[in-house]
Design a protein around this nucleic acid. Structure first.
Length: 492
RNA sequence: GGGCCGUUAGCUCAGUCAGGUAGAGCAGCGGACUUUUAAUCCGUUGGUCGCGCGUUCGAUUCGCGCACGGCCCA
């Protein structure tokens, strides 16, 4: 910020002046005994006569959001973490000395107030102050009161301003917190335990994605920020932790968009002696639990679409979805050359000799995914794009896998886990060949993980849920940056 | 990575098409006002027009490049 700009310079001079006069602009130790929310709850329905009957004085604190000055009396609005309340400060009530000091207080300052409640002529519940104190002097002006803060760059870089001024933003992040809290409640209720596995991994695994790399000085080794906790969680299932979940950050060194942030929050959970079909049921239960708990209903609006979570949700195979939703004929779907030509005609980039399974997945992302507005399970993915999934017993080219789509976004990805160590080694070797051929997203060989499988991973199903995207859907947010407090930005 | 759009006062925005160093509202400052709430009324301060180079007598305006942001595409 330009320190020499007019308004900030004026405030700094005022601060200097007040300090010279001996005012403590940052006093400690003020305590409140009631919040705005509590005031509204306790007194919101009382009329003036009832309010007069309350004998106590109350002490409140908040940030000054507006000032309407009448000379010998002033109305202000203060905002605390729970809401906004009007206060009325009258010279003959607080006394001349206090009133003079109060006149130094500006919009943006934190104040402490003592007083009782009454209703104004326009029936607004208001604190009639008997004293006011400055708690914190603001040295930068707040954004304008009417239009608020619109500039998205400032909103993201200085999120605190966004939170002060834009109530809907505050509500989004409060709801985010409640969603995460409710998810934990659900898994706890279902008998899961929450675990924490390494964020710094010497072999990054569990997802096809490019990792961030770092270096540990005293060990002298490269480490990677995890792209997924998956392989560690499955090691825990080998260890006999049969129902586990982890809800924390992943890091992927990839592009930034309305649906991608380099660090994002992922829920992963694993259930021993279960299949991907069991997890579809459990996923429906989880979402219904969230919807009922948070909204008390099973429909929400997302970006103009009404989304109905009533179960059961359709379970459509990936190839059927390409046929029925994507409108692609069987003659194209099941003919490698025709399929490749079709994909290219849609502007999709393909590697030389890219396998049909991978082409199908790319076509799906491009054509079908944006159309899946209502909750939909897409099942039975090609094995080539599912290197950690179990094969179907009756079709070795298809994985026991599903992805959940809502609002045109991939929300969850799950499968029956591949627990055959020899098959897993073959899949890793294939991934290693892709990596050698230049695919930076391909999986690394992880012998230590295979060793864990050799001790015996029971038949297990696991799932990952993109929490940020889920929060986007549940808070009607168009961009992932609207649900991450400090989204990644370029250095200014 | 490519295309398009944006960047003007603390904030929200005009102005730039047709080059002559900028306006409004809110905020700020001074004053009036003891039930206002986008308070009102009178007066008033505030800008290296994102940065750099070029064209020009003269650039916020035109051209090129860069930075940051947004949307779309890959």
């Amino acid at each position: 910020m330009d320190e020499s700009s007019g308004i900030i310079k004026e405030i700094k001079e005022k601060v200097k002046d007040l300090r010279a006069k001996g005012f403590n602009l940052y006093p400690s130790g003020f305590r409140r005994d009631i919040t705005v929310e509590e005031v509204v709850r306790r007194f919101g329905k009382m009329d003036n006569d009832e309010l007069k009957e309350i004998p106590n004085n109350f002490t409140m604190a908040g940030r000054v959001m507006s000032i309407r000055d009448f000379g010998k009396a002033v109305f202000i609005h203060i905002k605390d973490g729970t809401g906004k309340l009007q206060a009325y400060i009258r010279r003959n009530r607080v006394g001349d000395d206090n009133f003079e000091i109060f006149k130094f207080i500006d919009i943006g300052d934190h104040v402490g107030l003592k007083g009782q409640f009454f209703r104004t002529k326009t029936n607004e519940l208001t604190l009639l102050a008997s004293s006011v104190v400055l708690l914190t002097k603001a040295q930068c002006p707040l954004p304008e009161k009417y239009h608020g803060l619109v500039d998205v760059e400032i909103r993201y870089r200085q999120r605190y301003l966004d939170l002060i001024v834009n109530d809907n933003v505050r509500h989004t992040f409060i709801l985010r917190s409640r969603i995460i809290q409710t998810i934990r409640e659900f898994f706890d209720k279902e008998g899961f335990i929450e675990v924490e596995t390494p964020m710094m991994q010497s072999i990054p695994g569990g997802a096809t994605a490019r990792p961030f790399k770092t270096y540990h000085q005293s060990l002298g080794i490269d480490l990677y920020l995890r792209v997924a906790p998956e392989l560690y969680l499955k090691r825990l299932v080998v260890g006999g932790l049969e129902k586990i979940y982890e809800l924390n950050r992943n890091f992927r060194n990839e592009g930034i968009s309305t649906n991608h942030n380099p660090e994002f929050t992922m829920l992963e959970f694993y259930v021993a002696y279960a299949t991907y079909e069991d997890l579809m049921d459990l996923t429906e239960e989880l979402l219904l639990y969230l919807l009922k708990k948070l909204f008390g209903q099973l429909t929400i609006k997302y970006q103009g679409n009404l989304i109905d979570f009533k179960t059961p949700w359709p379970r459509i195979s990936l190839t059927d979805s390409l046929k029925d939703i994507g409108g692609i004929g069987e003659n194209v779907l099941f003919d490698n050359k025709a399929l490749r030509d079709f994909a290219k005609s849609k502007g999709i980039e393909l590697e030389d000799n890219e396998e049909s399974g991978r082409v199908l997945a790319k076509l799906f992302d491009h054509i079908v995914e944006p159309k899946l507005i209502q909750p939909t399970f897409i099942i039975d993915h090609p094995i080539q794009v599912s290197p950690l999934s179990r094969r179907k017993d009756d079709n070795s080219e298809i994985a026991e896998r599903f992805e959940l789509y809502i609002g045109g976004k991939e929300i969850a990805n799950a499968f029956s886990e591949l627990n055959d160590p020899d098959d897993q080694r073959d899949r890793f070797l294939k991934q290693a060949r892709l990596r050698d051929a230049g695919d930076e997203e391909a999986l690394f060989m992880d012998e230590d993980y295979i060793k864990a499988l050799e001790y015996g991973l029971p038949p297990t199903a696991g799932e990952g849920v993109g929490i940020d995207r889920l929060v986007m859907v549940l808070t009607d947010s168009p961009s992932i940056r609207d649900v991450i407090l400090f989204p990644q930005m370029r250095k200014k």
